[in-house]
């Protein structure tokens, strides 16, 4: 693992994890602000919230896997 140029590639790929974190945070923040504006509609949108989080997070996980596979 040490001293290999592939480690640099792995590190670069891991940036994607941070970007996915931004995406997930964005989904959650917008869900929360929407839910606070209209709390009665929030419960029906929890499903879509989870789906959105899953899609955003999946891409971060892809980046993480690329990093792991070097």
């Amino acid at each position: 693992m040490e001293g290999d140029i592939s480690s640099i590639g792995a590190g670069l790929a891991a940036i994607g994890c941070g970007l996915a974190a931004l995406g997930v945070g964005n989904v959650a923040a917008n869900f929360l602000s929407g839910a606070l504006r209209n709390p009665s509609a929030a419960a029906s949108q929890v499903t879509n919230f989870f789906i959105g989080i899953a899609f955003a997070e999946a891409l971060g996980i892809f980046a993480f896997l690329v990093a792991l596979m070097q």
Partner: peptide, 16 residues
């Protein structure tokens, strides 16, 4: 592909 890697990747990443 995404369906499987989402599940496997999340669990794998967390444990690793």
């Amino acid at each position: 592909v995404s369906h499987s890697i989402r599940l496997g990747g999340n669990i794998l990443a967390g444990h690793a």
